[in-house]
Amino acid sequence: MTAAETPFEPKIVAFCCRHCAYAAADLAGTSRLAYPPSLNIVELPCTGRVDVLELLRTFEDGVDGLLVAGCLPGRCHYLAGNLHARQRVDYAQRWLEDIGLEGERLRMINLSAAMGAQFAELATEMAETIKGLGPSPLGTRRAAGEIPSIGCAACGDPAPSLAESAHDRGDGR
């Protein structure tokens, strides 16, 4: 098996809230605490910005694991963004299981900006979990041409961008 020759380095994306986990990751870096090199950090204004669609699309794009890192409960700068994120992560986990992926590939953690060491620890733990599970069975990339969009018949937009689409909620709700 080639995996024995080139050790599997899981591709993990971390959606980090700017007010806590992103700063904690920064702190971990400046404190020279080791965390998995293949961790891709995406800064968010709040984990409340996370959407189930983006979580699934990220997996479809071939990541092996996904961390959503928000503020400690009760410490969200927008009151409940981290709680919403938790609900959506739980919901997306159920989707993953239905699809046939392990729910553990997606995880939500809660941190404060000062918790650099914990960030490094949890990220490492996540990498170990994913190593145990092996690479995502979906393969690396979405097969080319798998999503031929024919646009939105409602507004004639040739390729509606999904999450931001103005007609996202139909009646603007």
Binding site: A143, G145, E146, I147, P148, S149, I150, G151, C152, A153, A154, C155, P160, L162, H167, G170
Partner: peptide
């Protein structure tokens, strides 16, 4: 059994 799924929404 890969399947292509295109997306659209009508009003």
């Amino acid at each position: 059994q890969p399947m292509s799924v295109a997306e659209t929404t009508v009003q």
